[in-house]
Design a protein around this nucleic acid. Structure first.
Length: 295
DNA sequence: TGGGAATTTCCTGCTT
DNA sequence: CAAGCAGGAAATTCCC
């Protein structure tokens, strides 16, 4: 995929994913330079940092780092597992403690936003609006982190839903092109997470759900259900449907063949393969032994 | 209220 | 034989 280099999320392979920022953080802003003109028009100033969700805090963090061309991996993101109110309560020292020398930049950025509603001369905007825009334009299930953070609470799955937002902008092919008129209107993701995304997210977080589904060939997108009924029940739990079974889940999976979200794998039970319209499952390793999920 | 998308439910027949 | 797979058909749910 053409956008591999600029549209990735970097996670140290040696560190548990849940200790890291949602992968979106790096993703968004590696993409931001590519999409700056697109993104800049999305920002507005109608949401004070005080009211940000955790997700929006992360968005701001990533955007600020990107603006200063600071490598997102150079600061411990787990120190910013905060909502807007907590963030605004941090003083300069708190920032330097949390992010070292970068802390002063972050502090300055936040101060500008708090008091001026903007940062420098840029079109600073609220992360929340970016979220809205992306939700509007793309069919892929996308919900703000705050709404999804408990999504897998019963199963201890790490939620990486937020990881795929801006990447979707750059991925191709998209089923349909964004309509600039419609993009001005806020629209929620119609039905929450789609089944294939649910499956993908389990696959991308095996340390949280060992033995449910596993990659057969990650580079090819081939995976296999190990505990089919358990996955079905998990899916049912998410959909508040206690009668979900693998038989029903698999029917939904088969519908994906036509849409090329999945491809058939003949002759192998419980084996599926992501198709050309499934995004966010590819992975590659870079020179720093970090892995990147390619959208 | 109607329409569409994305399942969900049920079913028959076939395959492993 | 049980468990899966393949799809058709209709129902359901949710959103616009």
């Amino acid at each position: 995929m053409v956008l591999q280099a600029s549209c990735v999320m970097s996670i140290p392979a040696t560190v548990s994913v849940d200790n890291q920022l949602p992968a979106s953080w790096t993703t968004h802003y590696n993409c931001a330079d590519v999409t700056s003109s697109y993104m800049s028009r999305l920002w507005s100033q109608d949401l004070h940092p005080q009211n940000w969700t955790k997700y929006q805090v992360w968005e701001w963090l990533q955007q600020t780092l990107d603006m200063h061309q600071i490598d997102a991996t150079s600061i411990p993101f787990q120190n910013f597992d905060l909502d807007g109110r907590q963030l605004c309560n941090m003083n300069f020292q708190d920032f330097t403690r949390a992010a070292g020398s970068v802390g002063s930049i972050l502090f300055q950025s936040l101060t500008d936003l708090k008091w001026n509603g903007q940062y420098g001369q840029t079109d600073m905007f609220t992360p929340g609006d970016i979220k809205t825009e992306i939700e509007t334009d793309f069919p892929c299930s996308i919900l703000p982190f705050k709404e999804e953070s408990n999504f897998y609470n019963t199963s201890e799955l790490f939620d990486i839903k937020s990881s795929f937002q801006p990447n979707t902008i750059l991925s191709s092919p998209a089923p349909s092109s964004p309509d600039p008129k419609r993009s001005q209107v806020k629209r929620h993701n119609p039905r929450g997470t789609h089944l294939w995304e649910f499956i993908r997210d389990i696959l991308l977080n095996p340390e949280r759900n060992p033995g449910l589904i596993k990659w057969e060939d990650h580079s090819e997108g081939v995976f296999r259900f190990l505990k089919s009924e358990a996955v079905a029940q998990l899916w049912g739990k998410k959909k508040n449907n206690s009668s979900m079974t693998y038989e029903k889940l698999s029917r939904a999976m088969r519908y994906y063949y036509k849409r090329e979200i999945l491809e058939r794998v003949d002759g192998r039970r419980l084996v599926y393969k992501f198709g050309r319209n499934a995004r966010g499952w590819r992975i590659k390793y870079n020179n720093n032994n970090n892995y990147q999920i390619i959208i």
